[in-house]
Simulated assay, not measured.
Amino acid sequence: MSGNQPSPQQSDRESIPQQPAITVLGLGPMGRALAGAFLAAGVRTTVWNRTPGREGDLAERGAVVAASAAEAVAASPLTVICLVNYDATDAVLRRDPVEAALKGRTLVNLSADIPERSRDTGRWAREHGVAYLDGAIMTPADTIGSEHGVFLFSGPAALYEEHRAVLDGLGGTHTHLGEEISRAAAYDIALLDVFWTSMAGYWHALALAEAEGVEPLELAPFAAGIAQILPALFGELAADVQHGGDASGAINPLSSAVSTMAHVVHAAEAHGIDSGVMRAAEGLARRTVALGHGAAGPARILDVMRGPRPAAQA
């Protein structure tokens, strides 16, 4: 046998597909759900948490529990970190042993924070030779590993495609939003805005209904009916804003909307209910009407909310 030919044993080893491997840093409820989904998908999973003992049953299910973050990172070509914010991720990642272990490897950050923090982490990753994807999880921990999970990613498309097969182990819907590293965070923060302001409106509605003798569970089905109207309105308003139209004004002019907002505020405050959120919305609408847009639709409210834009964006 020629000296430069592989031995049969070597050929057999090279023909065996390598099991995909991943490291998960952070074992709060979401981190444990992520690690559990990777294990269920057959991915060799190493885990680490700043506070020991948070791995739950992951070790019994086959996860390797690392003694340090650096050890965990060194165990896999791909690391996913999911902590409460980027202050927490910085405290873990931006230390000599971990930075050294990450060099030449890929990091996916599924923690939540503002877009500027994503851009800052992207700069740090480039400076330290770390391939980096930013991401966002748009659904609760109990959806991870199921068809109901929703994941957003941004960063180099080739890097995303390289690791997509492993990331798909999380189940659900995965969307790559573009090369700009902060795109996922921008979507995340805007969608959280929709969620929390909607929830604030619902809290207020429950308090107002209850004050008028309507039980929360009596109101809930009708509130769900209101929610079903919103998707079409979201699309219509987005088109008006993006293309400068005003299709919704003919049906629901702001002068009428202001009147109904005032009814909500007056009824709630008569019961001593804090109406700060609705007063803010009403105030924006009234300012828009005062500028001569009473017959317009809600798209004109954005002109008041965001102020004058540079000519290039107008």
Score class of each variant (00 low, 15 high):
residue 9 Q to A: 15
residue 170 L to V: 00
residue 170 L to I: 00
residue 273 I to T: 13
residue 213 G to C: 06
residue 21 A to F: 00
residue 92 V to Q: 10
residue 121 T to C: 09
residue 132 Y to N: 13
residue 44 R to N: 14
residue 258 V to Q: 04
residue 302 L to G: 08
residue 306 R to M: 10
residue 173 T to F: 13
residue 147 E to R: 12
residue 202 Y to G: 08
residue 285 A to Y: 12
residue 287 R to S: 08
residue 269 E to V: 01
residue 30 M to H: 09
residue 293 H to R: 07
residue 104 G to M: 08
residue 285 A to V: 15
residue 173 T to M: 10
residue 119 R to W: 02
residue 220 A to D: 09
residue 306 R to I: 14
residue 225 G to A: 13
residue 271 H to M: 09
residue 68 S to T: 14
residue 251 I to S: 05
residue 208 L to T: 09
residue 210 E to V: 03
residue 285 A to I: 11
residue 83 L to M: 14
residue 75 A to M: 02
residue 42 G to T: 06
residue 199 M to L: 06
residue 160 Y to T: 01
residue 146 S to D: 12
residue 247 A to Q: 14
residue 272 G to C: 03
residue 43 V to I: 14
residue 251 I to G: 07
residue 270 A to N: 11
residue 83 L to Y: 05
residue 294 G to N: 13
residue 86 Y to D: 15
residue 110 L to E: 09
residue 37 A to Y: 01
residue 102 L to D: 05
residue 212 E to G: 11
residue 140 P to R: 04
residue 254 L to M: 14
residue 306 R to G: 08
residue 195 F to E: 10
residue 286 R to C: 14
residue 51 T to N: 07
residue 125 A to W: 01
residue 110 L to V: 02
residue 63 A to L: 00
residue 95 R to E: 04
residue 291 L to N: 07
residue 178 G to Y: 06
residue 180 E to G: 07
residue 259 S to E: 15
residue 45 T to H: 05
residue 94 R to Y: 09
residue 186 A to E: 08
residue 264 V to I: 11
residue 98 V to M: 02
residue 171 G to S: 13
residue 239 A to T: 15
residue 312 A to P: 05
residue 199 M to P: 03
residue 206 L to N: 13
residue 230 L to R: 04
residue 280 A to T: 15
residue 164 R to P: 10
residue 200 A to K: 13
residue 13 R to W: 05
residue 86 Y to E: 13
residue 83 L to H: 03
residue 196 W to C: 08
residue 271 H to C: 12
residue 97 P to K: 07
residue 272 G to R: 02
residue 250 A to D: 08
residue 296 A to P: 04
residue 210 E to L: 08
residue 12 D to T: 08
residue 259 S to M: 14
residue 164 R to W: 10
residue 169 G to L: 03
residue 39 L to W: 00
residue 204 H to D: 14
residue 250 A to V: 09
residue 160 Y to M: 11
residue 217 L to M: 15
residue 266 H to T: 15
residue 52 P to S: 06
residue 293 H to M: 08
residue 11 S to F: 02
residue 40 A to R: 12
residue 255 S to H: 10
residue 262 A to R: 15
residue 203 W to A: 06
residue 234 F to D: 11
residue 183 R to G: 08
residue 86 Y to K: 05
residue 149 G to I: 00
residue 296 A to N: 14
residue 119 R to I: 01
residue 250 A to S: 10
residue 265 V to E: 07
residue 46 T to I: 06
residue 66 A to W: 00
residue 226 I to P: 04
residue 194 V to G: 03
residue 218 E to R: 12
residue 220 A to T: 14
residue 154 S to D: 12
residue 193 D to K: 04
residue 86 Y to P: 06
residue 213 G to H: 11
residue 92 V to D: 10
residue 213 G to T: 01
residue 88 A to N: 04
residue 20 P to K: 01
residue 36 G to P: 02
residue 276 G to Y: 13
residue 107 L to Y: 01
residue 25 L to P: 04
residue 185 A to I: 12
residue 133 L to F: 05
residue 186 A to R: 04
residue 286 R to P: 05
residue 222 F to W: 10
residue 6 P to I: 09
residue 4 N to W: 12
residue 165 A to W: 05
residue 194 V to F: 11
residue 264 V to Y: 06
residue 217 L to A: 15
residue 219 L to A: 04
residue 138 M to K: 03
residue 137 I to M: 15
residue 270 A to H: 10
residue 278 M to F: 06
residue 199 M to G: 02
residue 224 A to D: 06
residue 191 L to W: 02
residue 96 D to M: 11
residue 113 D to R: 05
residue 303 D to R: 07
residue 226 I to A: 11
residue 96 D to A: 14
residue 281 A to R: 01
residue 62 G to Q: 01
residue 231 P to H: 06
